[in-house]
Simulated scan of single mutants.
Amino acid sequence: MVSASSLLLPSSMRDFASCIGDGAVRVACASPSSTLTSGGGSGSGSGAASTLAVTASYRATPLNSNASSPPLLFRLTWAHSPVGPTLSFAPSAAAPSVLLRRRRGTRSFTLADGGGDADDAEAGSEPPMLALFWDLTAARYDPGASPEPLYGYFVVAVAGAEVVLAVGDLAAEFVKTKFEGQISKARCLAVSRRERVVVADPAAMHTARVRFSEGGPEHEVSVGCATSSGGGEELWVSVDGKRAVQAQRLRWNFRGNQTVFVDGAPVDVMWDLHGWWFRDTPGCAVVMLRARSALESRLWLEEEGAAPGFSLVVQAFKAPP
Protein backbone atom coordinates (compact mmCIF):
# COMPACT_ATOMS: atom_id res chain seq x y z
CA MET A 1 0.00 0.00 0.00
CA VAL A 2 1.39 3.40 -0.96
CA SER A 3 1.09 5.99 1.75
CA ALA A 4 -0.78 9.18 1.08
CA SER A 5 2.25 11.22 1.99
CA SER A 6 4.25 9.75 -0.87
CA LEU A 7 1.64 11.06 -3.28
CA LEU A 8 1.72 14.57 -1.90
CA LEU A 9 5.10 15.58 -0.55
CA PRO A 10 8.78 15.65 -1.41
CA SER A 11 10.84 13.52 0.97
CA SER A 12 12.12 16.51 2.95
CA MET A 13 8.58 17.63 3.72
CA ARG A 14 7.49 14.08 4.65
CA ASP A 15 10.37 13.87 7.13
CA PHE A 16 9.44 17.28 8.50
CA ALA A 17 5.77 16.36 8.85
CA SER A 18 6.56 13.15 10.69
CA CYS A 19 8.69 14.91 13.33
CA ILE A 20 6.29 17.71 14.29
CA GLY A 21 4.85 17.20 17.74
CA ASP A 22 1.08 17.24 18.10
CA GLY A 23 1.40 19.79 20.87
CA ALA A 24 2.81 22.33 18.41
CA VAL A 25 -0.56 22.81 16.71
CA ARG A 26 -2.22 26.16 17.29
CA VAL A 27 -5.78 26.86 16.26
CA ALA A 28 -7.02 29.87 14.33
CA CYS A 29 -10.22 30.50 12.44
CA ALA A 30 -10.56 31.31 8.75
CA SER A 31 -14.07 31.98 7.51
CA PRO A 32 -14.93 32.29 3.81
CA SER A 33 -15.55 35.71 2.34
CA SER A 34 -16.82 36.76 -1.06
CA THR A 35 -15.17 35.04 -4.02
CA LEU A 36 -12.24 36.95 -5.47
CA THR A 37 -11.95 37.64 -9.17
CA SER A 38 -8.53 36.28 -10.11
CA GLY A 39 -8.88 32.79 -11.45
CA GLY A 40 -5.81 30.90 -12.70
CA GLY A 41 -3.48 28.52 -10.92
CA SER A 42 -1.40 31.54 -9.96
CA GLY A 43 -2.12 35.18 -9.49
CA SER A 44 -1.58 37.73 -12.22
CA GLY A 45 0.40 40.94 -12.26
CA SER A 46 3.88 41.97 -11.17
CA GLY A 47 3.50 40.37 -7.73
CA ALA A 48 2.68 36.91 -9.05
CA ALA A 49 4.85 33.80 -9.08
CA SER A 50 5.38 31.94 -12.35
CA THR A 51 3.88 28.43 -12.34
CA LEU A 52 6.15 25.71 -13.75
CA ALA A 53 3.86 22.71 -13.31
CA VAL A 54 0.66 21.54 -11.65
CA THR A 55 0.21 17.92 -10.56
CA ALA A 56 -3.30 16.82 -9.58
CA SER A 57 -3.88 13.39 -8.02
CA TYR A 58 -7.22 11.57 -8.00
CA ARG A 59 -8.61 8.54 -6.16
CA ALA A 60 -11.33 6.48 -7.89
CA THR A 61 -13.40 3.71 -6.31
CA PRO A 62 -15.07 1.61 -9.04
CA LEU A 63 -18.64 0.57 -8.36
CA ASN A 64 -17.96 -3.06 -9.24
CA SER A 65 -14.92 -3.43 -6.95
CA ASN A 66 -15.10 -5.48 -3.77
CA ALA A 67 -14.36 -4.14 -0.32
CA SER A 68 -10.79 -5.50 -0.32
CA SER A 69 -9.83 -3.93 -3.65
CA PRO A 70 -7.61 -0.85 -3.33
CA PRO A 71 -8.81 2.35 -5.01
CA LEU A 72 -7.35 3.49 -8.31
CA LEU A 73 -4.92 6.39 -8.09
CA PHE A 74 -4.18 8.69 -11.05
CA ARG A 75 -1.94 11.72 -11.60
CA LEU A 76 -2.27 14.47 -14.19
CA THR A 77 0.70 16.82 -14.62
CA TRP A 78 0.35 20.05 -16.56
CA ALA A 79 3.68 21.71 -17.36
CA HIS A 80 5.24 24.44 -19.47
CA SER A 81 7.62 23.51 -22.28
CA PRO A 82 9.35 25.35 -25.15
CA VAL A 83 6.53 24.27 -27.46
CA GLY A 84 3.72 25.20 -25.09
CA PRO A 85 1.73 23.55 -22.27
CA THR A 86 2.06 19.76 -21.95
CA LEU A 87 0.06 17.01 -20.24
CA SER A 88 1.42 13.85 -18.63
CA PHE A 89 -0.56 10.97 -17.10
CA ALA A 90 0.30 8.30 -14.53
CA PRO A 91 -2.15 5.36 -14.15
CA SER A 92 -1.15 4.56 -10.55
CA ALA A 93 0.67 6.01 -7.57
CA ALA A 94 3.83 4.01 -8.34
CA ALA A 95 3.88 4.41 -12.12
CA PRO A 96 5.99 7.06 -13.86
CA SER A 97 4.16 9.77 -15.76
CA VAL A 98 3.78 9.32 -19.52
CA LEU A 99 3.89 12.42 -21.72
CA LEU A 100 0.84 12.65 -23.99
CA ARG A 101 2.54 14.07 -27.07
CA ARG A 102 -0.57 14.79 -29.13
CA ARG A 103 -3.20 17.36 -28.26
CA ARG A 104 -5.94 14.79 -28.87
CA GLY A 105 -5.87 11.01 -28.72
CA THR A 106 -6.42 7.75 -26.87
CA ARG A 107 -3.99 5.46 -25.09
CA SER A 108 -4.23 2.17 -23.21
CA PHE A 109 -2.51 1.36 -19.92
CA THR A 110 -2.37 -1.64 -17.62
CA LEU A 111 -3.47 -1.34 -14.01
CA ALA A 112 -1.38 -4.26 -12.74
CA ASP A 113 2.09 -4.00 -11.22
CA GLY A 114 2.11 -0.26 -10.82
CA GLY A 115 0.21 0.62 -13.97
CA GLY A 116 2.76 0.21 -16.76
CA ASP A 117 2.00 0.94 -20.39
CA ALA A 118 -0.05 -1.75 -22.14
CA ASP A 119 2.71 -2.21 -24.70
CA ASP A 120 4.96 -3.53 -21.92
CA ALA A 121 2.53 -6.21 -20.70
CA GLU A 122 3.78 -9.79 -20.84
CA ALA A 123 2.56 -11.85 -23.75
CA GLY A 124 -0.42 -14.03 -22.91
CA SER A 125 -1.30 -12.15 -19.74
CA GLU A 126 -4.58 -10.32 -19.28
CA PRO A 127 -3.99 -7.53 -16.77
CA PRO A 128 -6.74 -5.03 -16.02
CA MET A 129 -6.82 -2.34 -18.69
CA LEU A 130 -7.49 1.37 -18.63
CA ALA A 131 -8.37 3.47 -21.68
CA LEU A 132 -7.47 7.15 -21.60
CA PHE A 133 -9.13 9.74 -23.85
CA TRP A 134 -8.10 13.39 -24.05
CA ASP A 135 -8.69 16.44 -26.22
CA LEU A 136 -6.86 19.73 -25.71
CA THR A 137 -7.38 21.16 -29.20
CA ALA A 138 -9.83 23.80 -27.96
CA ALA A 139 -8.20 24.33 -24.54
CA ARG A 140 -7.87 27.89 -23.33
CA TYR A 141 -5.17 29.03 -20.91
CA ASP A 142 -4.41 32.08 -18.80
CA PRO A 143 -1.42 33.62 -20.64
CA GLY A 144 1.69 33.74 -18.50
CA ALA A 145 0.07 31.85 -15.62
CA SER A 146 -0.67 28.17 -15.02
CA PRO A 147 -0.08 25.52 -17.72
CA GLU A 148 -3.38 23.92 -16.64
CA PRO A 149 -6.26 24.85 -19.01
CA LEU A 150 -9.07 27.05 -17.80
CA TYR A 151 -11.70 25.44 -20.06
CA GLY A 152 -12.27 23.86 -23.46
CA TYR A 153 -10.81 20.40 -22.79
CA PHE A 154 -11.39 16.95 -21.31
CA VAL A 155 -9.40 14.03 -19.90
CA VAL A 156 -11.43 10.85 -19.39
CA ALA A 157 -10.30 7.39 -18.21
CA VAL A 158 -12.39 4.23 -18.49
CA ALA A 159 -11.69 0.92 -16.71
CA GLY A 160 -13.93 -2.13 -16.44
CA ALA A 161 -16.81 -0.45 -18.32
CA GLU A 162 -16.79 2.44 -15.83
CA VAL A 163 -15.68 6.04 -16.12
CA VAL A 164 -13.05 6.31 -13.39
CA LEU A 165 -11.73 9.79 -14.21
CA ALA A 166 -13.44 12.76 -15.85
CA VAL A 167 -11.60 16.09 -15.80
CA GLY A 168 -12.39 19.24 -17.75
CA ASP A 169 -15.51 21.16 -18.68
CA LEU A 170 -16.07 19.05 -21.83
CA ALA A 171 -15.75 15.68 -20.06
CA ALA A 172 -19.48 15.14 -19.44
CA GLU A 173 -20.39 15.87 -23.07
CA PHE A 174 -17.68 13.52 -24.35
CA VAL A 175 -18.87 10.67 -22.12
CA LYS A 176 -22.47 11.23 -23.21
CA THR A 177 -21.53 11.22 -26.90
CA LYS A 178 -18.95 8.42 -26.79
CA PHE A 179 -20.94 5.99 -24.67
CA GLU A 180 -24.47 7.28 -25.33
CA GLY A 181 -24.98 7.60 -21.60
CA GLN A 182 -24.82 3.79 -21.18
CA ILE A 183 -21.88 3.65 -18.83
CA SER A 184 -21.57 3.89 -15.05
CA LYS A 185 -19.35 6.37 -13.27
CA ALA A 186 -17.07 5.49 -10.39
CA ARG A 187 -16.71 7.78 -7.41
CA CYS A 188 -13.63 9.89 -8.11
CA LEU A 189 -12.15 12.46 -5.73
CA ALA A 190 -9.29 14.92 -6.05
CA VAL A 191 -6.89 14.00 -3.24
CA SER A 192 -3.98 16.37 -3.80
CA ARG A 193 -2.66 19.24 -5.85
CA ARG A 194 0.99 20.22 -6.10
CA GLU A 195 1.98 23.49 -7.75
CA ARG A 196 5.65 24.20 -8.58
CA VAL A 197 6.39 27.90 -9.00
CA VAL A 198 9.39 30.16 -9.61
CA VAL A 199 9.55 33.26 -7.42
CA ALA A 200 11.69 35.94 -9.04
CA ASP A 201 10.34 38.70 -6.81
CA PRO A 202 10.83 38.05 -3.06
CA ALA A 203 7.46 39.73 -2.43
CA ALA A 204 5.63 37.57 -4.99
CA MET A 205 2.31 35.90 -4.21
CA HIS A 206 0.97 32.57 -5.48
CA THR A 207 -2.75 31.80 -5.60
CA ALA A 208 -4.56 28.48 -6.10
CA ARG A 209 -8.22 27.49 -6.11
CA VAL A 210 -9.09 24.27 -4.26
CA ARG A 211 -11.90 22.38 -2.55
CA PHE A 212 -10.92 20.88 0.79
CA SER A 213 -13.91 18.53 0.96
CA GLU A 214 -16.07 16.60 -1.48
CA GLY A 215 -18.91 18.82 -2.63
CA GLY A 216 -17.58 21.74 -0.59
CA PRO A 217 -17.19 25.30 -1.86
CA GLU A 218 -14.16 26.36 -3.85
CA HIS A 219 -11.66 28.47 -1.93
CA GLU A 220 -8.89 30.78 -3.05
CA VAL A 221 -5.67 30.09 -1.16
CA SER A 222 -2.84 32.62 -1.41
CA VAL A 223 0.72 32.11 -0.17
CA GLY A 224 3.14 35.02 0.02
CA CYS A 225 6.21 36.44 1.68
CA ALA A 226 6.79 40.02 2.77
CA THR A 227 9.09 42.17 4.88
CA SER A 228 7.73 42.84 8.35
CA SER A 229 7.79 46.22 10.07
CA GLY A 230 10.86 45.10 11.99
CA GLY A 231 12.80 44.42 8.81
CA GLY A 232 12.57 40.61 8.92
CA GLU A 233 10.75 38.31 6.54
CA GLU A 234 7.32 36.88 7.22
CA LEU A 235 5.26 34.16 5.55
CA TRP A 236 1.51 34.47 5.23
CA VAL A 237 -1.30 32.23 4.01
CA SER A 238 -4.74 33.65 3.20
CA VAL A 239 -8.02 31.84 2.53
CA ASP A 240 -10.58 33.77 0.48
CA GLY A 241 -8.71 37.00 1.10
CA LYS A 242 -8.56 36.63 4.89
CA ARG A 243 -5.23 36.13 6.61
CA ALA A 244 -5.17 32.67 8.21
CA VAL A 245 -1.47 32.15 8.99
CA GLN A 246 1.30 34.67 9.60
CA ALA A 247 4.80 33.42 10.53
CA GLN A 248 7.51 35.97 11.36
CA ARG A 249 11.29 35.84 11.86
CA LEU A 250 11.56 33.16 9.17
CA ARG A 251 15.32 32.70 9.40
CA TRP A 252 14.69 31.17 12.84
CA ASN A 253 11.11 30.08 12.32
CA PHE A 254 11.77 28.40 8.95
CA ARG A 255 9.78 25.29 9.89
CA GLY A 256 6.42 25.32 11.59
CA ASN A 257 2.77 24.41 11.53
CA GLN A 258 -0.59 25.86 12.45
CA THR A 259 -4.18 24.65 12.20
CA VAL A 260 -6.96 26.79 10.77
CA PHE A 261 -10.63 26.04 10.28
CA VAL A 262 -12.19 26.19 6.82
CA ASP A 263 -15.88 25.32 6.37
CA GLY A 264 -15.87 24.29 10.02
CA ALA A 265 -13.23 21.59 9.52
CA PRO A 266 -9.53 21.63 10.51
CA VAL A 267 -6.90 22.29 7.85
CA ASP A 268 -3.26 21.80 8.86
CA VAL A 269 -0.81 24.34 7.42
CA MET A 270 2.86 23.30 7.42
CA TRP A 271 5.86 25.13 6.02
CA ASP A 272 9.50 24.24 5.45
CA LEU A 273 11.69 27.13 4.25
CA HIS A 274 15.06 25.63 5.21
CA GLY A 275 16.04 24.96 1.60
CA TRP A 276 15.09 28.50 0.63
CA TRP A 277 17.37 30.14 3.18
CA PHE A 278 20.26 27.70 3.60
CA ARG A 279 20.70 25.86 0.29
CA ASP A 280 22.06 26.95 -3.05
CA THR A 281 20.11 26.84 -6.31
CA PRO A 282 17.35 25.91 -6.80
CA GLY A 283 16.52 26.90 -3.20
CA CYS A 284 13.08 25.39 -2.56
CA ALA A 285 10.42 26.46 -0.06
CA VAL A 286 7.43 24.18 0.64
CA VAL A 287 4.03 25.11 2.08
CA MET A 288 1.30 22.49 2.51
CA LEU A 289 -2.35 22.73 3.50
CA ARG A 290 -3.95 19.40 4.37
CA ALA A 291 -7.58 18.90 5.36
CA ARG A 292 -8.20 16.32 8.06
CA SER A 293 -11.09 14.83 9.91
CA ALA A 294 -11.89 16.26 13.31
CA LEU A 295 -11.53 12.70 14.61
CA GLU A 296 -7.84 12.54 13.66
CA SER A 297 -5.69 13.16 16.70
CA ARG A 298 -2.36 13.44 14.89
CA LEU A 299 -1.12 16.14 12.56
CA TRP A 300 0.00 13.68 9.87
CA LEU A 301 -0.86 10.02 9.37
CA GLU A 302 1.19 7.88 6.99
CA GLU A 303 -1.39 5.31 5.97
CA GLU A 304 -3.45 6.36 3.01
CA GLY A 305 -6.71 5.12 4.48
CA ALA A 306 -6.04 7.07 7.68
CA ALA A 307 -5.23 10.34 5.91
CA PRO A 308 -7.96 10.81 3.32
CA GLY A 309 -8.07 14.60 3.39
CA PHE A 310 -7.27 16.80 0.41
CA SER A 311 -3.84 18.43 0.29
CA LEU A 312 -2.45 21.47 -1.50
CA VAL A 313 1.34 21.66 -1.78
CA VAL A 314 3.12 24.76 -3.09
CA GLN A 315 6.81 24.34 -3.94
CA ALA A 316 8.54 27.67 -4.62
CA PHE A 317 11.96 27.88 -6.29
CA LYS A 318 14.32 30.83 -6.65
CA ALA A 319 15.16 29.64 -10.17
CA PRO A 320 13.82 26.85 -12.44
CA PRO A 321 15.12 23.50 -11.07
Rank of each mutant, 00 (worst) to 15 (best):
W252R: 03
P321D: 08
A204P: 11
S69G: 03
L295F: 11
G45E: 10
S81G: 14
S92C: 09
L150W: 05
T35Y: 05
L136Y: 08
D15Q: 13
G181W: 07
M129K: 03
R292L: 03
G241D: 00
T177V: 04
V197C: 14
D117K: 01
F212Y: 03
S65H: 00
S293Y: 05
R243V: 06
F317N: 05
G45P: 06
L235P: 09
D280L: 10
I20L: 15
W252K: 04
G160S: 03
A48Y: 04
V2P: 15
V262F: 01
D142I: 07
E302Q: 11
R298F: 06
R290G: 12
R102S: 15
A118P: 00
V245R: 00
G309R: 06
V199R: 12
A204V: 10
V175W: 01
G264V: 07
P202H: 14
E195S: 12
A123L: 14
R193M: 14
G84A: 10
E173M: 06
L299F: 08
G40R: 07
E214R: 06
S238E: 09
K176L: 07
V155M: 01
P32G: 10
S12K: 09
T61A: 10
G116V: 12
G84F: 10
P308D: 08
A17Q: 10
D268S: 11
A204S: 15
K178E: 15
S44M: 13
V191A: 03
A94P: 03
D119H: 11
L273D: 02
R251G: 00
Y141C: 06
A49M: 10
L130A: 13
F154M: 05
L295S: 14
R196L: 13
S12Y: 14
V83P: 01
E173R: 12
G124W: 09
E304A: 15
N66C: 06
E122C: 08
